[in-house]
Amino acid sequence: MDWLQVVVLSVVQGLTEFLPISSSAHLILVPVLTGWPDQGLAFDVALHVGTLAAVLLYFRGELAGMARSWTRSLTTRQLDGDAWLAWAVILGTIPVGLAGLAFKDIVEAYLRSPVTLSIGMIAFGLLLGWADWRRRGTRTEHELTWRDVLVVGCAQALALFPGTSRAGITITAGLLTGLSREGASRFSFLLSIPVIVLAGGLETLELLTNGHPVDWSALIAGAVLAGISAYLCIHWFLAFINRIGMQPFVAYRLLLGAVLLWIYL
């Protein structure tokens, strides 16, 4: 990897991890469109570390309160808003964890193609646009019900399909259950924490067993750049989402999906 590739992939990962436009699609497409070699598993792990650090730093206050309340709930059996939100994040992660273990190899072997990506970008982009257009919800992430958690958690498992976008499908499901734009987005960001930990953990285990050499300077730079761009992305997304809505992201998904279909069909 040269330094231009390091910078571009790091910023792309940081910006797209938490936007409803599919980070995995962009990390697959950038090497395809530029002719760069695959960035390798070690670099993917570094990017995950950077984005994880960003979301932990941004939500550090909420996460500390959730951890205290969740720990207290184990002994008191009483749930306040923070404890329930912590349980919602845990329970909402189970479906994607099970789906990942069952279908990860199938997805990587048969579905990681530009045409498949374009189909996912367009189809789930239209679904996001419809959910945002018809939304009537005003509830926050602290007002989730069991049904909401089940719907959003199961929807998150669909993110295994390339082009879906984990953020996009969880925000879509949140809007459909009656959450506000900001509430759906914040719950989506919190749900990303265990998913990134699980994905990064599996990649780390694979990395440790393959014995490939590691370029530590590229990995450190990638993690830092991905973390900075991800933190800024979360901040500005939450600051403006109630004002701009989801339609700009829908338009981007449809345009990119159409261009990819035109190029590769």
Rank of each mutant, 00 (worst) to 15 (best):
V115M: 12
A54G: 07
A109W: 02
A123N: 02
W70T: 05
L85H: 02
L126E: 01
T93Q: 05
E62H: 12
W36P: 10
E108T: 10
D80G: 12
D132T: 07
W84Y: 14
L101Y: 15
L98S: 08
L56E: 02
S22L: 03
T71G: 09
A123W: 01
S69M: 05
G100D: 10
L85N: 05
A64F: 12
L33P: 03
L41Y: 04
A46H: 04
A83P: 06
R112T: 12
G120I: 07
D44K: 03
I94A: 07
L91T: 10
I122E: 00
L63M: 13
L74E: 04
R60N: 11
W84I: 05
D38P: 09
G100R: 04
A123P: 00
Q78M: 11
A67E: 01
A25Y: 00
D80Y: 08
P114G: 04
K104M: 10
I106G: 03
I122P: 09
S73L: 09
V49T: 03
V55R: 01
G65C: 11
P114W: 00
A99Q: 06
D105T: 05
H26K: 06
A64W: 14
F59I: 05
D38C: 00
W70K: 01
A64D: 00
R77S: 02
G129R: 08
R77W: 13
L98K: 00
L27S: 05
T51A: 13
G92K: 03
L111E: 07
L56W: 04
M121W: 00
V32Y: 01
I94G: 13
F103N: 01
H48R: 13
S113P: 03
Y110F: 13
A102K: 04
I90R: 00
L126M: 13
A42E: 13
L91Q: 12
S22A: 03
L98Q: 03
S118W: 02
D82E: 15
G40D: 10
A54Y: 05
A83T: 05
D44I: 06
S22M: 08
Y58Q: 09
T75F: 11
L47M: 15
R60Q: 08
G61A: 09
A53L: 15
L47V: 08
L41T: 11
T51E: 14
A42W: 05
T93H: 04
A86C: 12
L74M: 09
Y110G: 00
A123Q: 01
S113M: 02
A131T: 03
V45K: 04
L27C: 04
S69G: 12
V30F: 10
H48E: 06
W70D: 04
S113V: 06
A25S: 09
A109P: 06
L74Q: 03
S22V: 03
G50D: 11
W36S: 12
K104Q: 13
